[in-house]
Computed example of a mutant assay.
Amino acid sequence: MTDPEPLIAVVDDESPVRVMLGRVLRLADYRVGEYACGEDFLASLDGAQLPLCAIVDLHMPGLSGFEVQSRIRAATLKVPVVFITASDDPGLDRSALALGGRGLLRKPFSSDQLFEAIVSAVGQRDNGNAGDKDGNDST
């Protein structure tokens, strides 16, 4: 049995953004989990398979992208996060990296920029897999 396509999580409160990113990622043979809020995404992390990477909007109702990243780190889950935002605030880049984010894309961004950010984020991931909470491959 072959491994399923890698899972990418898209967390954004704007449905058109989730749909667009989902389509682009599926065309590149990723499985996509779409979440309208940080709380739903974090609840999904209780399952056996963690996403290879999470694309997380910074500004959402409820938990912000930074709060989502903080909770992922507090739970010691190995899920690299690439933040997305429509903000032009130059301080966000520094904040994103300081909190452990693997990149920050400003909307609108190209599919090439998205894939480059995912590859970079996954390449920076600490020694683990997207398998289980400890980063161990469960096969």
Rank of each mutant, 00 (worst) to 15 (best):
P4N: 04
E5K: 10
P6S: 08
P6R: 04
P6N: 09
L7M: 10
L7E: 06
L7G: 01
I8S: 02
A9T: 01
A9S: 14
D12Y: 03
D12A: 07
D13K: 06
E14R: 12
P16V: 13
P16E: 09
R18H: 13
V19Q: 14
V19T: 15
M20E: 15
R23G: 11
V24T: 02
V24W: 14
D29H: 12
D29E: 08
Y30L: 05
Y30K: 11
Y30M: 00
R31D: 12
V32Y: 00
E34K: 09
E34L: 09
Y35A: 03
A36S: 14
C37I: 13
G38L: 14
G38R: 14
D40L: 15
D40V: 12
D40Y: 07
A43K: 15
A43G: 14
S44H: 14
L45W: 01
L45G: 04
L45C: 12
D46Q: 12
D46C: 07
G47N: 10
Q49Y: 09
L50Y: 01
L50N: 05
L50E: 11
I55M: 14
D57W: 13
L58C: 06
H59P: 03
M60N: 03
M60Y: 06
G62D: 08
L63N: 08
S64T: 15
S64C: 13
G65Q: 02
E67H: 12
V68A: 07
Q69I: 00
Q69H: 07
Q69A: 12
S70N: 14
S70V: 04
R71L: 13
I72N: 06
I72R: 08
R73H: 11
A74K: 01
A74M: 13
A74Q: 11
A74D: 07
A75D: 02
T76E: 13
V79N: 11
V79W: 09
V79M: 07
V79R: 03
P80W: 11
V82C: 06
F83R: 04
D88V: 05
D89I: 06
D89P: 09
D89G: 06
L92W: 00
D93V: 08
D93A: 06
R94I: 06
R94S: 08
S95L: 15
A96H: 08
A96F: 07
A96W: 07
A96D: 03
L97I: 04
G100P: 05
G103D: 02
L105E: 08
S110E: 10
S111F: 06
D112M: 13
D112S: 15
Q113D: 10
Q113E: 09
L114E: 00
F115H: 14
F115T: 00
E116K: 01
I118V: 05
I118T: 07
I118A: 08
V119I: 10
S120K: 11
A121L: 02
V122I: 13
G123Q: 09
G123K: 02
G123A: 13
G123F: 01
R125G: 07
R125D: 01
D126T: 08
N127L: 12
N127S: 10
G128V: 11
